[in-house]
């Protein structure tokens, strides 16, 4: 337990010392929010159920944070640790594998939380973000989504031969998904066939899941199922593909 806590704290410190990773996980979603916020404003509109554009986009930005950490941070960090022999050194201690892997998950959950809290701070400070009924069920939904995407990240880390390829492939999968899923821009502005494609993407379901809870307080069971299946698949596959060296 002591090792796990130390590893988690150390991993957090290391993440915070990595300016590029910090930009993508913490600053980029806030920048997107601010950019679109200044373009579209956050005036309450009857057409939008009394919310503004920024209010409605928050679930998407949360999905962006989760996706960035799962698809970019985790694969790159772990593949880098494997490539350099950092995991190899850890293996040569009596520690065992669980604390190493779980500390990575814990640190990344905390990074996700930090990214989301920054979104809320920026939203409240700049756009007077309206918080609908304060439905706390988004917290377990965000955790489920995070674990699901982290599991995919562990698969990528295991399958990709190097940190560079892990990063490149992570970006190649993540960025199209980011723009189609409604995480970066609203889905309703897209043509029908694009929306249909988007319906197949896990990130879309993360956004829908959080959106429905955020605005209506209801669980979208289809999206829960999709995210849960991705989680289970990710766990099973990473179990067989993860490599320590």
């Amino acid at each position: 337990m002591k090792s796990f806590l130390k590893l988690t704290y150390m991993e957090l410190k290391l993440q915070l010392r990595e300016p590029v990773a910090l930009f993508f996980t913490l600053a980029f979603p806030v920048m997107v929010m601010v950019l679109f916020g200044f373009i579209f404003g956050n005036e309450a509109e009857e057409l939008l159920g009394g919310y503004g554009q920024v209010d409605l986009s928050v679930p998407g930005y949360i999905g962006m944070v989760v996706g960035t950490i799962g698809m970019l941070s985790i694969p790159t960090t772990l593949a880098n640790y494997r490539e350099l022999g950092i995991l190899r050194r850890l293996r040569a201690t009596p520690l065992g594998s669980s604390p190493v892997l779980w500390s990575q998950v814990a640190a990344q959950v905390l990074m996700t939380a930090a990214g989301i809290i920054l979104l809320f701070i920026a939203g409240l400070a700049i756009f007077d973000l309206r918080i609908p009924n304060g439905n706390l069920a988004i917290v377990p939904a965000i955790l489920l989504s995070a674990f699901s995407f982290f599991a995919v990240g562990f698969v990528l880390a295991g399958v990709m031969p190097s940190a560079r390829t892990a990063q490149a492939v992570g970006m190649a999968i993540f960025y199209p998904m980011l723009f189609l899923s409604g995480a970066a821009m609203p889905r309703y502005i897209m043509p029908d066939f694009v929306q249909q494609i988007a319906g197949l993407l896990p990130l879309t379901h993360v956004v829908i899941l959080i959106e429905d809870l955020w605005l209506k307080g209801t669980w979208n069971l289809t999206s829960v199922a999709v995210v849960a299946v991705v989680l289970i698949l990710g766990l099973v596959i990473s179990r067989f593909t993860f490599r320590w060296e």
Partner: peptide, 30 residues
């Protein structure tokens, strides 16, 4: 593992981990 010490070939620490942090961290493993 608690009774042996190893220095392995092709092993490393994270680039941004400080010397004292590495010692403090690894001490918690034993």
């Amino acid at each position: 593992g608690n009774r042996i010490g190893t220095q392995l070939q092709e092993a490393a620490l994270p680039e941004r981990m400080k010397v004292w942090e590495a010692l403090d961290l690894y001490a918690s493993f034993y």
